[in-house]
Design a protein around this nucleic acid. Sequence first.
DNA 1: CAAAGGTCCTGCTCGC
DNA 2: TGCGAGCAGGACCTTT
Length: 271
Amino acid sequence: MPELPEVETTLRGIAPHIDQQTVSKIIIHNGSLRWPVDKTLPRILKNQQLLKLQRRGKYLILCFSKGSLLLHLGMSGTLRVLNAGETLQKHDHFEMCFNNGKALRLRDPRRFGSVLWTTEPWETHKLINKLGPEPLSDDFDENRLYTKSRKKTVAIKSFVMNSHIIVGVGNIYASESLFIAGINPNKAAGKVSKKAYSALTQAIKIILGNAIKQGGTTLKDFSSPDGNPGYFAQQLNVYGRKGEPCPKCKKPITQKVINQRATYYCTVCQR
DNA sequence: CAAAGGTCCTGCTCGC
DNA sequence: TGCGAGCAGGACCTTT
């Protein structure tokens, strides 16, 4: 479920409840996630104060004085803040309880998510230190994609989804931003013009920025049992719309698998 | 049976 | 020949 806007929305939803709070208990219900959860975490984090929460790409980072916890939601993860003692649901794998009576709970049916403890500065962690710039930061400018893509033969769609180039463009927003920029997702990244990359860069910033704004309006969902993310569904132009008319030219939207991922585009408007 | 919003890892190919 | 870079595909898992 999580694209970057949802991860950001999750961060904004949970932070007010647990920021600066002290951990009373950690419970690992099922440590078999993408990587095994460190079994000593309950001992390490007991009575530690959560000093800061932040996001880098799709990783959420919880900072303590002894180190940092890197959380990733994978394909199907959700994080919620509940009152301690609420009934455990199926696929609730990890839980951090706080002295204020709140509990942060990770639910993830597919278990592609992760909970990783590191004592080094989180910026230098192996999974973080090679990440590209944040899409909404000034470090992500129209030159970045163009410069990095020279001589690359991968499809532009795969290229923008590569977190080492730029973080936060997932499968939905890759299709959406390429549509707005008028670029065929199959085109070799190295053959996309500077002008097209400029349009793509703008599209990514606008689309992700808007999605975060929308997400912000659904913050209340995060404390409800069945908070439903669907906030973006009505404004997607092409994703999931195979056969429906292109919003610009009315030709049916094409769906094709590119590097194992469903891709949606208009063969007329995207060249 | 296919597909679902992620991404790391492995192994192959290619060019210096 | 050896090595790194780039790339495709596999892997992880459950639910619909």
